[in-house]
Design a protein around this nucleic acid. Structure first.
Lengths: 233, 233, 233, 233
DNA sequence: TATGAATGAGTGTTCATTCAT
DNA sequence: AATGAATGAACACTCATTCAT
């Protein structure tokens, strides 16, 4: 019936932290949108705070620099994407199929969410990259593939580099509205892994239908896409 | 013994044009150096004019914006590199060998001229790219390769994209001082073209000794490297 | 056995006041330390509250502005120093001796407590001053000295000015780590009072040993010095 | 009848330098006025540029920081004052008389030019000081005085300190509109030098009439005073 | 054509102050 | 009374661009 002092303090602490987290989310969401729209060198702190509808000073309560905001945003968005891709790709598939499917899912995800597409394409290596997504989804994956004979012995950092910059290049073309032969790209990536031509083409085929992960309503991607749609009619 | 008025005017015009060209060269050289050092977003007009030893106003007599200066600089430097690579690579070699050799020459050229290395690696796709070098060296090359069966039928823009961003990624690692397995990279690129693994490894081997083009003393690369060496001891 | 309502309220009031006083002391101590460290224009409210380990808002419950905090701090510290000096200087000594001894004690006190030294030297006339110390220790002292023939008839505010700014200048040199001839300074001050050269030199001699006041453990100076020592190793 | 290229360049150079010097003077004059009005911590770059009627950017073409502007201003104004005082004080006078006269002239100068008064009083030791004026007017002066027996052997830095902070204190009172006994102050300063009381009083007497230096119309002091008068009716 | 001073919009950063909890 | 997040005015500094000489 009556609260102790501790209860009160605890309550305050909890409420305070929740509010803080909420503001942080708001800023992150705004950062993602602005960076997606204007790229790394086109966005300034003012854009972010205006998009978030908060004051200049508030930004500095959460970040030190605009790069810091980007860093935080890309980590948050990257984590979500990793989980989504992870949910979709069956761990039992053979390595080449898994790489191919991951790529297809990631690219299709970007196709369907311009927010993600523009964020990735415009920030390039300053965004989280498909390479890092793959690494986080399955560390040790490349070594296993080599050992099982699915892949050839190609330096891992070379593969990750090519996956990363290759995906960025593809997304750039998608963003530009070009027709893109995604299967050809995926096949090329598999050949970087060491697959032969026919194998690569075979494994790169896109499943039909391509099953996409379901996106929680309160995810950055969902909320961001809604806001994005409003401002990009 | 005496000159006509026309002669005089003509002489003046010629002298004027020569002076203008000289100033332009000076600004281009300065631009290359500054962009190589500070990248796209780190360089401002002041850096260029101070490096060239001219006044602010002069810059605007030759360029509209700093991006304009970069554009001019990359075209000039790109043209030189195209010629150099062209000089070195024997047009009689089989297609895969020619791609491989071009890549080796280009990368080695960059290795030996930090100016070129840093310009390419730091500017990335804002620099001229290896892809465009290859296109200019031999347009129609890819189609011929496909027709002759040397390459498989892979979309040309995909290949050029991968060559471009792949080379940039490799140069980035070289610039960072990392050990880079260039042959593995070249082989991967050849597999993008559709070669099988063994063929790709075979064709990607770097000739020993690798013959580099001789660089004219009055080229941008030569003059720039000298100036570069002075300021980067 | 049971308390009346009045008793309860009274108790609450007393407890509340004690708590308030405690917080005030904490803020004053923090203010002294921060101002000693960063001077008048280098310190902002945040420094004080962080040093005191309280929240921003609390500051405003006790002070209106940062200058207000300084004012309160200097008065509190000034009062302590006055008492300390007063304790040490024998009221029976002849006037010149008393001035000289006060100066020696004050300067030595500052020498031994960097907190006091830096607070005084860095804040200058925004600190409490030796002049005001003397005034509070013995009002009417100057007039008495003149009447008794110990001092000449020199405008009192002139003397206080010179004592104040002179002491600050000396402390500045001490803080800077210079060798300072304190006796020469004291003699000069006595000559401002009107003493002849030889007299001034004679009266300015520092007693050996110089007896310093004992500093209560719960004084600002003692507590501040302990905290100061922790943060200035 | 015709100019050579060299002549043209030379002319341009001279014109350019003259213009630059003029703008510098304008900024210095504005700096002096603003600092005199608002003190060290009250003035910001905007005040100076608005007072000078130029743009923000222009300030940075001449100074790095506001402190830099102050430094430049104090040196310029200090130099003028040194010359003025120097012009007035007869080098043949005995040392004590010279010190006394210098002080009288300086203080009277400040009295008659509020610009100088407020600049000195408000900036305190951040202004040029009387001590430094004296040093520049006659280096070696103190040592000579000691050797000739006019002064006693008192540490020179002590004397300069006292002259400096003492003069500032006096000017502060003058600025505040108080009645100030300047002769008593001068006498006190002479006693710091080691003079006996009667000698000090005798030598400190202000000549009547006190001859002041004539101030050139294009001096900072003259121009500044005119501008000052306009804005301080 | 070359010069370089002047401009001012744009941006980052600080910090006193308010206020809901 | 204590907290600390939010605010926004104030200020420093940069840099592309213009223009008189």
């Amino acid at each position: 019936m009556s609260e102790s002092l501790d209860d009160v303090l605890d309550h305050r602490t909890r409420v305070g932290q929740a509010r803080r987290q909420k503001m942080l989310d708001r800023l992150i969401e705004a950062s993602i949108m602005v960076f997606a729209e204007r790229g790394l060198n086109g966005t300034v702190i003012d854009h972010v705070v205006r998009c978030a509808g908060v004051s200049r000073g508030t930004f500095y309560n959460y970040f030190d620099t605009i790069e810091d905001a980007l860093e935080t945003a890309r980590i948050a968005l990257g984590r979500e994407v990793v989980l989504l891709v992870n949910d979709t790709v069956d761990a039992e598939l053979p390595p080449a199929k898994r790489v191919a499917l991951s790529l297809h899912v990631f690219i299709e995800l970007a196709r369907q969410h311009s927010l993600l597409l523009e964020f990735s394409a415009r920030l390039g290596r300053h965004s989280f990259s498909f390479g890092s997504v793959l690494c986080q989804v399955e560390p040790g994956f490349h070594a296993d593939g080599v050992q099982s004979g699915a892949f050839r012995d190609v330096p891992e950092e070379l593969i990750l580099d090519m996956l990363e910059v290759g995906t960025i290049a593809i997304l750039g073309r998608v963003m530009a509205g070009e027709e893109v032969d995604v299967e050809a790209f995926v096949a090329a990536m598999l050949r970087v892994y060491g697959l032969g031509f026919e194998e690569s083409v075979e494994a790169a085929m896109r499943p039909d239908p391509l099953v996409l992960p379901s996106i929680p309503d309160d995810s950055l991607l969902a909320r961001g896409s809604v806001a994005w749609a409003k401002s990009h009619p």
